[in-house]
Design a protein around this nucleic acid. Structure first.
Lengths: 350, 350
DNA sequence: TGGCGAAATCATAGCGCTACGATTTTTAAA
DNA sequence: TTTAAAAATCGTAGCGCTATGATTTCGCCA
């Protein structure tokens, strides 16, 4: 890195690896203040006099100083990083939340460190362990279900933990999300209200997708309570339009006079819609379809898809708000839980 | 945190904030070796004798020691973090790459730090600045176009830089991706081969989406060279099925006897497909449609969508490979460029 | 048994910054 | 003016770890 070894001294006592060429010390020298003042200025500009402030600002500009957050994190015993652990960013729901969080956190100069569990509890445990070694300002996890070891590490570490996208179970610190069983209930009630009486839930990967399963359970429960026939048709693969088509075919085999389906998400619903088209089954007359997610294509289908929209971005923004509140000491409450709700969008597929 | 202040000394010289309760020192004491040996064991287990190794392993297990990567990063002048800056993770393409990278990097115990530019060059500059203050092992950027300040910072910082998802321009260090103009050319050639002679390119947000624009340009150029009529129809909003429908209507207004369209991505193509359905326009007989991306729904549409598949995951894996190679010193080459190619999937929409 | 090179281990000096407590300067009240 | 209180600034001891070079231990042959 820095080429500082070729000088006249026959042998230097120690050749140190340097991280950066210009440090806070250099800025302090240039601005004729002490390093502490520079540090203070960087963290709480309002605590420094206007004259010192502008001198420091000029020095930073002149030397193009970039603070070393790693050193800062070590000294402060907490880094300006937030660790977010989601099942997968390929999933549009989580991508939306991650994007919203990152946007909100950036304003507070917090960085997002990302990890994917791929729906594996052991992987999550590992990711949490690594996350902790970064001494993050907060850790964000998906869902309320974690291994015992994960919970133990988190409670021992004294890091604020936020669990997102699920509500209604034992939470570690804060939780932000909604009740997935209520989504299922809303879908069932809606279909029944539309006069449908032979229902099915089309689900992908329900053995791994806890929240999908909750929606399914809510749906089945509500249908049963209303005295309406209901079946669960599922497939172990992850959700896609192809799987949706297959599931609808399977469902029609089991319940030939099927007249309403709820799907674990809009990918499945879209596939079901395409399958109806292929089978010349009129939607919603012969079969009503309700999805989940309100994905990018949902409003543009033929017919437009009735779906339930969660607010993934709101979850992200609220999580960021909580983290920032916690850091600034405003938010004292630990065990908050925020219900971000969901909306049923009644479009023409039902 | 650590409760070490209640001892007999009337007043301690300094109350220090502690990051963690059990440090490498504790492990060393427990295992009866020096801290250096523990550090060595953690970084290169094979350099430590079997007896010392197992003693250390036992100590780590017993004390449930979690190494502090922040301290490690400071001491080593480079952290085990890789900063990835993409326009948006909501975009399925980048989500796929990010996911693949994170999976590959995890095996080498490298963390992903994520940032979104939202297609804003100034934002990118800011993100790069912050990224640098983490002293990452590498920085991954999207595309080859960056502000002058960004380039300056990066070259000055001596960090390996990898630019992804674009090839064919001046690159900083390594670049991994493909030539987008060739995608456009492939789409045009394909449509012409199918006997189509009145073409249009349906594009969303082409003013911001550089790579979409490149595909568009390639398409138009190839069509012109073949002596085939071609129009560009665009919309400033970001890609969605709704915009796709609108664009197709616009296109038909401009070119009533339109017989082939290429779309800036599959969202647009899907919208066009739906619009055809509404207009009772047979696909591919009256109108052939080619998309880009091979998104989750593309194979399941009616008719299945002909599209061009980039390999987003391969880009991610290759990037990870390069980074790891660089860290271990295997990969010496700087200015490599890796062409990950693309595939035209001829399905029934053309 | 001695001696030598290789392997294993160690002691130490920071990496760049922040928080603490102390000191200096400024402000306002007496 | 004096003086207390408030505001601004400073000096410094680590935060926990790694890289370096030095030292010790080991394996092996003469």
């Amino acid at each position: 890195m820095a080429g500082e070894r070729e000088n006249e001294v026959p042998r230097q006592p120690r050749s140190r690896r340097k991280m950066q060429s210009v440090t806070m010390m250099d800025v302090a020298d240039y601005a004729k203040v002490s390093p502490s003042t520079v540090s203070l200025y960087l963290r709480r500009p309002e605590a420094v006099s206007a004259s010192a402030g502008s001198a420091i600002a000029r020095a930073i500009e002149k030397l193009s100083y970039v603070p070393n957050l790693v050193a800062g994190g070590l000294a402060a015993a907490s880094s300006r990083a937030v660790s977010i652990i989601v099942p997968s960013v390929r999933n549009a729901f989580f991508a939306e939340t991650v994007a919203a969080m990152q946007t909100s956190l950036r304003k507070e100069r917090l960085q997002v460190i990302l990890g994917h569990t791929e729906y594996d509890e052991k992987e999550e445990e590992d990711l949490v362990r690594t996350a902790l070694s970064w001494a993050p300002a907060a850790i964000v996890l998906t869902g309320l279900c974690h291994s015992e070891a994960t919970r133990r590490m988190l409670t021992k570490a004294h890091v604020p933990v936020i669990e997102i996208w699920e509500l209604g179970g034992p939470q570690i610190d804060a939780a932000i999300g909604f009740h997935h069983d209520q989504v299922g209930i809303a879908a069932a009630k809606h279909l029944i209200q539309q006069g449908k009486r032979r229902l099915a839930f089309l689900g992908a990967r329900l053995h791994e997708d806890r929240r999908g399963k909750q929606r399914c359970d809510g749906f089945v429960e509500a249908a049963r309570q209303a005295g309406v026939s209901v079946e669960i048709v599922q497939h172990p693969a992850s959700a896609s339009a192809e799987v949706g088509g297959m599931l609808l075919r399977d469902a029609l085999q089991i319940v030939p006079d099927l007249d309403g389906v709820a799907c674990s998400n809009d990918h499945i619903a879209l596939g079901a819609l395409f399958e109806c088209e292929r089978l010349s089954m009129s939607v919603p007359e012969k079969l009503a379809i309700v999805g989940f997610g309100d994905l990018s294509f949902s409003a543009a289908c033929n017919p437009p898809l009735t779906t339930i929209r969660p607010s993934g971005d709101l979850i992200g923004r609220e999580a960021a708000r909580l983290i920032v509140g916690h850091m600034t000491g405003k938010e004292q409450e630990q065990k908050v839980s925020i219900d971000t709700r969901f909306t049923l969008l009644h479009r023409r597929s039902s």
